[in-house]
């Protein structure tokens, strides 16, 4: 029966008839978009095509990259985490307040990471064991975290700690006189670790399995509960880490930091090719998604004549295009 013979062609045929696997197509699309934006930018604006502009995308968006990585885990299981922006703000507040109170900076950082992870864990437990919609559970988390910020202080708290100050200004010089901050390095490490976890560990593959079909994953005997709770804890940890990076970037803690940043993170993940229904997507895509968002901003600041609202407009258009494209792909598949 010929129907059983599938996909066993010689490597010659494979190379000749190569088309990228379906699951890479959205990421490749994002990559092509990013490259062509840079191409257009370097033709139109002088100095756009310098390596430093490229690296600055990483530097300026390090926190968003980390946030998007956490969000990718959640969205891959078919969930959503609306609390991340508020957790970033809360993290900057906790960092600033504890430092002002004279805590050692390392303890302060550990506290921030612990609080973020715990918040995520709690939301995950609520979502899984009470079967609450992730949208609602994390919406509650979003209000809670934002409210806690005000409980700490209504005012902005400056960060004057030496370690924070030196970390925020320290740079690594790459060949070609390109400066890279430690925050950007941390963001890239997070992307690398996340990709490793998602593709090389049972936890990571179970994330994809749950997103593909939760019922099947359960019947396959996989630890669905652990993964479903785990992704929110990871997202909480990433939010706290992003909060630390953000406080290094801003050198202050403030209740109104990162308002709406959860939506930027979701947009980056979607533009990066991750399906909102779960099961398909790559962290690298989310990194590219953030870079695309950053490139739009750079584009507009280089232009100088465009109002900054054009950033939002372009993000909106891009998001729509990508979601429609995803729909197109998934329909063609079925």
């Amino acid at each position: 029966m010929s129907a059983v013979t599938v996909g066993s062609t010689s490597w010659v045929d494979r190379v000749k008839g190569y088309s990228p696997p379906q699951r890479f197509v959205p990421v490749i699309a994002t990559f092509v978009l990013f490259v062509s934006m840079f191409g257009v930018g370097s033709i139109r604006y002088e100095g756009f095509a310098s390596p430093q502009v490229l690296v600055n995308l990483l530097v300026d968006n390090a926190f968003l990259i980390v946030l998007a990585v956490g969000m990718t885990f959640v969205i891959l299981t078919g969930g959503i985490d609306l609390s991340v922006g508020s957790v970033v703000a809360l993290s900057t507040m906790i960092a600033a307040a504890t430092l002002r109170a004279g805590w050692p900076p390392v303890l302060s950082m550990v506290t921030v990471l612990a609080v973020g992870t715990l918040l995520g864990l709690l939301m995950g437990l609520v979502i899984h064991y009470f079967q609450i919609q992730p949208f609602i559970a994390t919406l509650a988390g979003m209000f809670l975290a934002r409210g806690l910020c005000y409980l700490i202080s209504v005012e902005s708290i400056p960060i004057r700690d030496d370690l924070f100050g030196s970390l925020s200004s320290a740079t690594i010089t790459l060949p070609g006189d390109v400066y890279l901050t430690y925050t950007a390095v941390i963001a890239l490490v997070v992307v690398g670790v996340a990709a490793w976890v998602l593709h090389m560990t049972r936890f990571g593959r179970t994330v994809y399995a749950v997103g593909g079909s939760e019922a099947s994953a359960l019947l396959m005997g996989l630890r669905v509960a652990r993964v479903k709770v785990g992704v929110y804890a990871i997202s909480g940890f990433c939010s706290a880490l992003a909060g630390l990076l953000f406080s290094l970037y801003m050198l202050s803690g403030y209740s109104l930091h990162a308002v709406g940043m959860e939506l930027d993170a979701i947009a980056a993940v979607v533009i990066g090719g991750t399906l909102l229904t779960g099961g398909r997507g790559l962290v690298v895509g989310s990194l590219l998604g953030v870079l695309v968002l950053g490139a739009i901003q750079t584009f507009i600041s280089f232009d100088g004549t465009l109002s900054s609202w054009w950033t939002k407009i372009s993000i909106g258009v891009l998001l729509l295009v990508f979601v429609v494209m995803q729909r197109f792909f998934s329909r063609r598949q079925s």
Binding site: R205, T206, Y208, A209, G212, S213, M220, G221, R280
Partner: peptide, 20 residues
Amino acid sequence: VNLCTNLTVAENMMLGREPH
């Protein structure tokens, strides 16, 4: 069929007890 169609054939067969 209670498998995850977004994973590979091998993963569907091995997931939960894949070699490490």
